[in-house]
Design a binder for these strands. Structure first.
Length: 297
DNA sequence: CACTTGACCTGTCCGC
DNA sequence: TGCGGACAGGTCAAGT
């Protein structure tokens, strides 16, 4: 489930390979993965040079020289892996070795789209076929529904405490966990970093937004940024499928506090981490460090 | 978010 | 062993 840190890690990786490359050919093995007409493909994509890569929330933009961008959303199981032709990756070392390869021979059975260059290929793999690639004018990405109501970038200078609080207060009656997952509030936070942020800020995931003190909101603001930054530093989280541009796993889950740590001791107080369901999502938290509060009227 | 469910999909795991 | 069902969770749409 690539979230902001995973997509950012992929973006950083692909930036080493793609800018300057000309798209020679695109092969599609699952039509719904590439939502671009044949006509647009031949007129606006094939033969175009890649200029740069951007990220907005969990979406990656491959900017072309002609003013169009291919927008990629990886959803749950999407991967973008660059390979030089005939390059073979070593098989995984096993045992959760850092940077272990998760993909070897490409294409594999989850490959949906292959973009070919003079040298090398970009593979879009997507086991569950939820991800998509769309084409949009670079300076008008809001045409896409996904961008239209997207909240602020949590790691940008513009994202300050006031904006965070204002956006959250639109959800005053909802629980904090689903509020954090709402992409209108902040762009790019998903299940992993919602749980990790709430742990760092010592807030129970089922706390109502309106019941959270100003001090806790500030802690949460800091915690969201901190957990995302730390995850980028460790190359993102590999829960199941995620790999970076080289097909390697991320290491952040080795440093996570609560995500997928149910029935393991809390790193602060050693109480067993619990897993519950909140708003339909698996949610991990420490029942002692993260208590529900209710504001007195 | 008011809140839940379903749709989109496949692979893995668990119980029988 | 094999089979059915639950589960994983990002986003949008639709139902209650």
């Amino acid at each position: 489930m690539p979230e902001l840190p995973e997509v950012e890690t992929i973006r950083l990786g692909l930036t080493k390979y793609l800018p300057g490359k000309i798209i020679k050919k695109i092969d599609i093995t699952w039509a719904k993965s590439l939502l671009v007409s044949k006509k647009d493909l031949s007129l606006k994509v094939i033969g175009q040079r890649i200029n740069s890569l951007d990220r907005r929330g969990k979406a990656l933009m491959i900017n072309l020289d002609n003013g169009f961008s291919l927008v990629v959303h990886l959803k749950m199981t999407g991967q973008l892996v660059f390979r030089l032709d005939n390059a073979k990756s070593r098989q995984g070392f096993g045992g959760g070795h850092p940077n272990e390869s998760l993909v070897s021979e490409l294409p594999d059975r989850s490959t949906r789209v292959i973009m070919s260059f003079d040298k090398g290929k970009l593979f879009f793999n997507d086991q569950r076929k939820f991800g998509w690639i769309k084409l949009v004018k670079t300076d008008n990405i809001n045409e896409l529904a996904f961008f239209a109501n997207l909240g602020p970038e949590p790691l940008s200078k513009e994202f300050n405490l006031e904006i965070f609080k204002n956006n959250l207060m639109c959800k005053a009656n909802s629980m904090i966990k689903p509020a954090l997952l709402d992409q209108k509030v902040i762009a790019g936070v998903g299940n992993i970093y919602a749980d990790e942020s709430l742990f760092l800020a010592k807030i129970h995931p089922e706390t109502r937004v309106k019941d959270i003190s100003n001090q806790k909101l500030k802690s949460l603001y800091v915690a969201v940024k901190k957990s995302l930054e730390t995850a980028i530093k460790y190359g993102g989280s590999t829960d199941r499928n995620y790999v970076n541009a080289e097909g390697k796993k991320g290491n952040y889950l080795n440093y996570a506090n609560v995500f997928r740590k149910d029935n393991q001791p809390c790193p602060i107080c050693h109480t067993m981490i619990k897993k519950i369901k909140v708003a339909g999502r698996g949610t991990h938290f420490c029942p002692k460090c993260q208590r529900i509060v209710r504001k007195k009227k």
